[in-house]
Design a binder for these strands. Sequence first.
RNA 1: GGAGAGAUGGCAGAGUGGUCGAUUGCGGCGGUCUUGAAAACCGUUGAGGUGUAACAGCCUCCGGGGGUUCGAAUCCCUCUCUCUCCGCCA
Length: 423
Amino acid sequence: MLSINFIRENIEFVKERLLIKNFDAEKILSDIIKVDKKRRETQKELDDNLSKANSLAREIGDLFKAGEKEEAEKAKEKTSQLKSQNKDLQKELESLKKEQENLLIQLPNIPHKLVPAGKSEENNEIVYEADIACETAGKAMPHWELATKYDIIDFDLGSKITGSGFPLYKGKGAILQRALIKFFLDKAMEAGYTEYLVPLMVNKDSAFGTGQLPDKDGQMYHIVADNLFAIPTSEVPLTNIFRDVILKEEELPVKCTAYSTCFRREAGSHGKDVRGLNRLHQFDKVEIVQIVKPEESYKVLDEMVDYVKSLLSFFKMPFRISRLCGGDLGFAAAMTYDFEVFSPAQNKWLEISSVSNFESFQANRMKLRYKNDKGANTFAHTLNGSALALPRLIAALMENYQSEKGIIIPEFLIPYTGFEIID
RNA sequence: GGAGAGAUGGCAGAGUGGUCGAUUGCGGCGGUCUUGAAAACCGUUGAGGUGUAACAGCCUCCGGGGGUUCGAAUCCCUCUCUCUCCGCCA
């Protein structure tokens, strides 16, 4: 959420920058300014009235104490009009605040200067491509066939037990999954991240804090009986640890990581790229989150990109990094880098990680602040990234590492899997 | 699920209708003293809004929401959470 003070002072700038995200903010901004003005006027009026009421109450108290009962009773009568007036003002203020909030949360975050304009992923800017050749492009066996051939992932059983998009991993498939999780968590720890094991369901406040609500309402599984949401990523519980928190400056940067299962309804995307592990309702992911000082957030974004790059480099598979254009950028992000790994069987790039700087957008929503060196409370900047999401990585790994003998486990992973080949 | 107790400032912990935004202790910050440090002493120390050139001023906040009253941290209702006991259970 953008802060009202910032908007008030930079309307034209906000309007202009949001066009990069293909968001026409003209109407909503003028509404916000109008409501804001009204809100402040009402606030002032109410405050003045309350001030009067307070001093009257004090006087009445003094009169009672002095034993002047009659005078006191007389003074009481004066308050009734003030009271009813204040009640109305209070109601009005309340509804103005709500109105303002409703408008504010509709505004997406402002994209960073470097974000290219553009409508869709075609306009994303590729900033890095690993220099790794892929000889089997178009000739490799797809991972869903390999899965069956070696009996390590059972999509049909998943469907039987739950439904499509809930695969069941078996034997070496399950172990590979566990090995990767452990590998990624170990690396995150080496890089200074503190590991958490988080709740997989969150309440409304948390879902709102990171921006899942109300923007992506239909994308989360909702447990109605208890009004809880299954997390679409551990970013939600991780970042919400710091909801309504004022950190000390020396506590920054906060670096945390969590492995979790993630749940996504993927409503509206049925039938598109859903084969095999490409798009699932349930999957596993290791996430990294940082909370930093505003002036450092872009340096940290680069660091996080380098970190994810270093992870992917272990696998020696073709991958590339792109900076998302305005049209492809998420609601809450100011800048995002996507990582894609190459699937030789499908002959296409699979998105495997997404690293974003949200600047103060999430922090403002969840009132995440720190005390700066001048003692002033300041919104921190939040960043997060996948490091990494497993299914597509496993898909790419299976396809890239297939051989006549079986799927060869990359050497660095063998200590984690305990086996060298899936056959 | 049943019965009871509780939720106050960074922490501990007073406060049961009228200068209480809140006694006090610890912690933090500033100072005096000291060659330096400790101790001691003095001062200071929450958040949000409004407002100001900047101060000041004013308003709100004692778990959340609602109510009673001229006036509520204090009384009433309700929700959430924590603790103790009982039941059930991985």
